[in-house]
Amino acid sequence: MAGTLVDDHPMTASMDEKTRLAVFEQTIVPHLSAAYNLAAWLTRNKDDAEDVVQEAYLRAFRFFGGFHGGDGKAWLLAIVRNTCQTWLRREKGNRSVVMFDEQTHSPELAKTNPEGMLLKKFDVVSLRECLEGLPVDYREVVILRELEEMSYQEIADVVKIPIGTVMSRLSRARQRLAECVAARVNGGLV
């Protein structure tokens, strides 16, 4: 048993590696799809999302001693989010982020090209683009609330912010989304 684990829980600490791995595979690995979804929305790049999720899982396993039971999903997503943050900070200094597809997610660009927008199924495409264009602090609360259907408390645990901040960020994010979609539907005239 490695003695390097931070904040070891007595039960997980007394487990041998085989048991630890088995418990980890039962409680944490099943949340892979949520982990990948969050990473993909935060990094906006599929290859990077894979790398981030893999790195997050290894970190999670290393710090599994700090998991005291309870909601494995929120515990894992907090680590995925941290790993994404590190990645995004590193990325800022390096290259410009490669996006999911060629379509831009910037509302400003859409405004300069209203003809192109008319040809799109604006309802589906623009909502997605608007969400991708939201600042990451707003984007993550929307993903956790609407796609992962987490409660405010669970979101607060993942993002490590007070519940009141979850509420105000979510509210602000919704206003921005609504404004962005409305702007596109009206061809950027609003």
Partner: peptide, 19 residues
């Protein structure tokens, strides 16, 4: 309208091997 991003099938295997 907003679909989840689905993890590629090989990712789970890669992670299990790494673990």
């Amino acid at each position: 309208q907003i679909t989840r991003h689905t993890a590629p099938a090989k990712l789970q295997r890669t992670i299990q091997v790494a673990l």
